[in-house]
Amino acid sequence: MTNATADLSPSAHGPARIEPVRFDELPGLMSLMTGDEKHGPAATSTLDAVWVLYDRVLRVSPDSVSDPERDRFLLSKGHGPMAYYAVLAAKGFFPTDWLPGFGSYDSPLGHHPDRMLVPGAEIGSGSLGHGLPLAVGTALGLRAQGRPEPAVWVLIGDAELDEGSNHEALAYAGAAGLDRLHTLVIDNSSATHGWRGGIASRFQAAGWSATTVDGRDHQALYEAYSAPHPGRPHAVVARVEPKDA
């Protein structure tokens, strides 16, 4: 649990790190976060995919977190946020010296992200099955506001597809043609159920553009993220090693 009254001002924690951070430095940042409830495999499975998004795709920065024209990234797989926190720190959303306090009572970095405490976080997450419906609502809201530019990205785990709420959301999004909506599925073979042809086929059947890539291959991830999908939402299934491997 975190203290909701934590002081997030720069004067309390010092300025965010501004020098460039390379991908190979991220494991070191993640190693600063310790504890018995850190869900290490859930975090490391997302590291490459989240990095490529923030490093090469998303139009959002520490200076634009309140800009209505920013891209939105929603972490639905909120029970393993260490990679997410490491990337946000690396990109300057908050100081790297917050990381060692991960999960402590007075730290803004809880075991599940809190959008009121973590700069750059769009949702409070951790209850599986909610992220994709929230992303659909976000994309609908931006459409209703006449904002065609912001992209909405949501990261879900493959096991979240056991939740019926996600199937309702992906069916609606395909029918509605929410082409600014993107779902990144981290597939580490955790799902109870599956589909012939793989996870991508489930999205395609609902009218989505979908592709499956190696979740550790940065160039393949970038090409999948940036593939055109006019008139349709887009899903990228990132295959990584099984969680028990």
Rank of each mutant, 00 (worst) to 15 (best):
T5Q: 08
A12Y: 01
P15H: 09
A16E: 11
P20C: 04
V21I: 15
F23H: 08
L26K: 05
L29K: 01
L29R: 02
S31L: 14
L32T: 03
L32K: 07
G35Q: 05
D36G: 11
G40Q: 10
G40S: 05
T44P: 00
L47M: 11
D48Y: 00
A49K: 06
V50A: 03
W51S: 10
Y54D: 11
V57N: 00
R59Y: 00
R59P: 00
V60S: 02
D63L: 07
E69W: 13
R70Y: 08
D71Q: 07
L74Y: 02
G80H: 06
Y84K: 07
A86P: 07
V87Q: 03
A89L: 08
A89T: 08
A90H: 08
G92K: 08
F94Y: 14
P95N: 02
D97P: 03
W98K: 03
L99M: 11
G101M: 01
S104V: 10
S107L: 01
P113D: 10
D114K: 13
M116R: 15
V118H: 02
P119M: 05
G120E: 12
G126I: 10
S127G: 06
G129I: 10
G129L: 05
H130N: 12
P133F: 03
V136P: 06
V136A: 03
G137W: 08
T138A: 15
G141Q: 09
G141A: 11
L142R: 13
R147S: 11
E149Q: 07
V154I: 13
L155G: 00
L155M: 12
A159R: 11
A159V: 14
E160P: 04
E160N: 03
E160R: 03
L161M: 15
L170M: 12
A171I: 12
Y172W: 11
A173G: 09
A176N: 05
D179A: 12
R180G: 07
R180H: 15
L181R: 05
T183S: 10
N188H: 05
T192N: 04
T192K: 11
G194S: 14
R196F: 04
R196Q: 13
G197I: 10
S201I: 05
Q204S: 14
A205M: 12
A205W: 08
S209T: 11
T211R: 11
D214H: 08
H218Q: 15
A220I: 09
L221W: 03
E223S: 13
A224P: 07
S226M: 15
A227R: 15
P228G: 03
P228W: 02
P230V: 06
R232I: 06
H234E: 08
A235V: 09
A235H: 02
A238R: 04
E241K: 04
D244I: 13
